[in-house]
Design a binder for these strands. Structure first.
Lengths: 345, 345
DNA sequence: CTCAAAATCTGTAACGATACAGTTCTCTTG
DNA sequence: CAAGAGAACTGTATCGTTACAGATTTTGAG
């Protein structure tokens, strides 16, 4: 009985009840583990028939590569992290966004991991976490700011990501954005067409980039169509609906109340409507509202409100595609998309 | 120069720019890798001072255990999978659920992975995927059915999970549920108190367990409070809002129209309101509605609708806690919670 | 002092996959 | 028919961690 020193890679039959590994397939085909691995990757130095045989058996036994093994060896996580602000919920955009991202990732090897941060903590924390721990191959962020430190950090580290919203740092990176400038501009136009001249804007918080866009479109609209702005700066879209409602009611009761209002979100519009009606005014008569909206609710209950649709599910899809493309090395300049307001009905 | 055969585990200084590993700390402390590993786990066979030293340095260099390493060695993924139906979105419950789960997981080592399935594919698929690939340590599912094959499968494999909704299979497993029987019962009572006697119910799809609960509460309410049911079986909560609206309008125009309606979701109630008003009837006058609701929208725009709140964020939190407890070995019988309708305002 | 027990610490192997550097064997080609 | 090229395949080392089975030192009882 001569003990051979050079032993076959896969000598022992893998126990039958465990998840199949490359070893299982190697044993079944009589090939080496390396060969099986390379066959499944369609490497050029493996024979066509061998590949076929390996693929067949792999399918037969239901082989899935062990993610931990791949990740440990190659560093590739096959994970996209969606960074979410837990307080953002009430705006109602989280859900369709998650669904949109999922939809795309489901067609790939990627998993979606939700990485949350609480409203009062540093938004850089989750990004640093992913970078430091290598928790994902790519990241999607929202609530993008003009000078966004998260973007700066990820660019510096050359880490793939996509932003919901644009930045203003002279850095080229993947993004998807809704044309909020066009939204506000069109909104003003529609109000003026209805004879409205004194318009207020429920705007996003100053810190976010799309505040600037919306503001710009708003002011350009006022100039082009000849209307005036009614100040409404005590609240923004980050305030609670109750606060917005109260602030709106106050403006409506003040002298020189607006006869037109624009809301940067559907939730905000609901609060505005409530404020307007609490002040005893009538929608469509005393005042018109143009709102951004992503679902049908508002449309059903206050058909007087003019709504321009923003598709968050689409945003999720676009961002997922962009991040994956970035991971695969496509240049960021090709991965920037914009979507446009669509009149509801 | 004598070549020592027995070499120290960690001989070479780890390159300084890489993520720190146990090896890094071992090198810095002059200890063995094993010792460092055990020190960080607070194992009993490591000296108190050594543990302190190791912990200090680990914190200093920002050590995070490599998840792939742990996962490969121990099989523990530190992942909870939330299985989502992509089509479920419009009910609007996805988002708060995700947030609630995230909230809890953020306080633990667990990551949240979204595992989606499309509406027309087999709901068992994502469960099988997680089981077959070992993608998670625990699973959360919703749209629970009385005889739910997913539950049967996971029980059989002894895999930790929690369900949003109960089953009726005589199997004890963790769940969180809203008391839909109580909801419907209370809803009938409230309608009868307002003098309503002919009541219709917009109910969940027949296949789901909470259909039975809601139905039971509804019928018990009719008996106890002396009201009659108006058939409304052409649509359920899985139909589109447009379909529900149309069906509702038809019922309202038919002879013997209902004077009370109960909706199993806020979205459904919006469609009912639209249908009722399209038929020329007036809410609070010709008919009253009691609806389940998770946000404030409906409340603001149709204060006439009586809403009973269901807290989906709470559900997410409870389910996350339950699954983790199950993973840690707590008996399933202790991990079943119920939440109750709360009158809004 | 002696020796066993207790207290600390450590090396090796393994989890599953892949990069890399071979090894065989079969053909060409001159 | 020798030599080199090419095709097809394979073993080893490694990623970071932990289970396990020692190894070494200290302590304390007799």
């Amino acid at each position: 009985m001569d003990e051979k020193h050079k032993s076959r890679q896969a000598t022992l039959p893998p126990s039958p009840n465990e998840r199949p590994t490359l070893k299982t397939i190697a044993f079944m085909t009589g090939l080496g583990i390396t060969t099986v691995s390379r066959a499944l990757k369609d490497a050029p130095d493996i024979g066509a028939e061998t590949k076929e045989r390996v693929r067949l058996i792999a399918a037969q036994v239901g082989y899935h590569p062990n993610r931990a093994g791949v990740r440990l060896r190659t560093g590739k996580t096959n994970v996209i992290s969606l960074i979410l602000n837990l307080e953002e919920e009430f705006i109602g955009l989280t859900s369709p966004m998650v669904i949109g991202v999922s939809e795309i990732l489901a067609t790939t090897q990627y998993h979606l991991v939700i990485t949350p941060y609480s409203g009062h903590s540093d938004p850089l924390d989750p990004v640093r976490y992913v970078l430091d721990t290598g928790a994902a191959d790519g990241v999607i962020i929202s609530r993008t700011e003009p000078k966004d430190p998260r973007v700066a950090l990820m660019m510096e580290r050359n880490f793939p990501f996509g932003t919901h919203g644009r930045t203003e740092m002279g850095l080229v990176h993947p993004y998807h954005d809704f044309d909020n400038e066009r939204f506000a501009y069109d909104a003003v136009r529609m109000l003026v067409e209805r004879g409205r001249r004194r318009i207020m804007l429920l705007q996003p918080p100053r810190s976010l980039t799309y505040h600037i866009h919306m503001r710009t479109g708003f002011e350009r609209g006022l100039r082009d169509f000849g209307a005036a702005s009614v100040p409404f700066n005590t609240v923004d879209l980050d305030n609670s609906l109750a606060d917005i409602r109260a602030a709106c009611e106050a403006v409506m009761r003040a002298p020189d109340a607006p006869d037109g209002a624009i809301s940067g979100s559907g939730g905000g519009a609901v609060a505005l409507v409530a404020g307007i009606e609490a002040a005893g005014l009538k929608l469509g008569h005393d005042i018109d509202i143009v709102s951004k909206q992503s679902n049908d609710f508002l449309q059903w209950l206050r058909p007087e409100v003019i709504t321009l649709r923003e598709d968050f599910r689409l945003a999720g899809r676009e961002l997922a595609k962009a991040v994956i493309a970035r991971i695969e090395g496509r240049p960021a300049s090709e991965l920037q998309t914009l979507s446009f307001p669509v009149l509801q009905n």
